[in-house]
């Protein structure tokens, strides 16, 4: 009784071209994986890793006139290959006050700006995460929207806002307050960094905060904790990965920032990105610029590692 109707013979299998191709490739040792990997690996090797090596190489050269404007590391003279490495660029970085000051001031400015961004971004992220469902997406969109409009134009918009006769001072003027000098100061640079990088802070914070179960807060309140206590002992520790990720996403690019200090900062605003730019474009000292870049890389390596750790924690549940 179990074999009421025997399954009919399976239908004929059409020859699948892909199978044949696959078999042929497998014969010469090429697997599907390699085909997937080859393009991105090659591209990134040639256009990401090799360039960094080139920067390192050129940082060991010296400036000279001609094209390209740096000395060759390898030279052949009468059949002998000579390798000439100049450490002078690095020595200058440590001995010339300009560079040391620029690094320190970049770190300081980026750190202060990051803290301010966190203080502004956290309540916003928290408010969005706790907002009713239908509002949440609209609010998130409002956060992302400025990020998609041009970075440069947003910095530009700030200049219109903070100039001597800008919107803020005109507004203050209505109350008879003397115009404030905001442009060309470190203050303007802080505002610029906070303003342009705020979405980078809010998004990872939102991602961790929205995952927190509201029952956690209710449990904490039920066990007798006041809202402030609950925030300090439950919300804050649990959103730590978001805080770290968001802070690093602001801090790292802020260190190397060029546009903001050059449009909003004054002549006294020393930032390393600007120093590198001037070294390259104004002084055309490519080897020195390369050395500055290598040193900058060293400064951001630890934050980058912190970021990667935090990001995997943000993504996990």
């Amino acid at each position: 009784m179990t074999t009421a109707h025997e399954p009919t013979i399976p239908p004929p299998r059409r020859l699948r071209p892909w199978n044949a191709v696959e078999r042929r490739l497998a014969r010469v040792g090429i697997t599907g994986r390699m085909l997937v990997l080859i393009a991105p690996v090659l591209w990134l090797l040639v256009f990401f890793l090799v360039p960094l090596a080139v920067v390192f190489g050129i940082s060991l050269a010296t400036k000279q006139f001609g094209r390209p404007p740096y000395s060759a590391l390898l030279s052949t003279e009468e059949g002998t290959v000579q390798l000439t490495l100049h450490l002078s660029n690095y020595i200058r970085l440590f001995t010339d006050n300009l560079y040391v000051a620029a690094y320190l001031s970049s770190i300081r400015i980026a750190a202060i700006a990051t803290v301010i961004t966190l203080l502004i971004g956290y309540p916003m992220a928290y408010a969005i995460a706790r907002a009713p469902d239908r509002w949440r997406n609209i609010l998130l969109m409002l956060v992302v929207l400025p990020f998609f409009t041009s970075f440069l134009l947003r910095v530009y918009a700030l200049t219109g806002f903070m100039r001597g006769n800008g919107v803020i001072n005109q507004f203050l003027g209505l109350f008879g307050i003397e115009p404030l000098v905001m442009m060309q100061t470190d203050f303007a640079v802080y505002v610029g960094i906070v303003y342009t990088y705020l979405p980078f802070m809010i998004l990872p914070l939102y991602t961790t905060l929205v995952k927190l179960d509201t029952a956690l807060f209710e449990a904490s309140a039920d066990l007798g904790a006041r809202p402030a206590r609950t925030f300090l002992s439950v919300t804050l520790p649990l959103s730590m990965p978001g805080i770290v990720a968001g802070s690093m996403l602001v801090f790292i690019p802020a260190i190397g920032e060029f546009v903001i200090p050059s449009l909003l900062g004054g002549p006294g605003t020393l930032m390393i990105g600007r120093v590198l730019w001037d070294e390259f474009f104004t002084n055309t000292n490519w080897p020195r610029a390369a050395a500055v870049a290598m040193a900058m890389l060293v400064v951001v390596v630890v934050p980058i590692m912190l970021l990667q750790r935090a990001q995997s924690a943000v993504v996990e549940k």
Partner: peptide, 22 residues
């Protein structure tokens, strides 16, 4: 290599690629 360009300061990326092209 995939994720580093996300956070690499623009000035470094720009300089590195220019030096490579040269």
């Amino acid at each position: 290599m995939v994720s580093a360009p996300l956070v690499m300061p623009d000035v470094i990326t720009g300089l590195a690629l220019l030096l490579l092209f040269v």
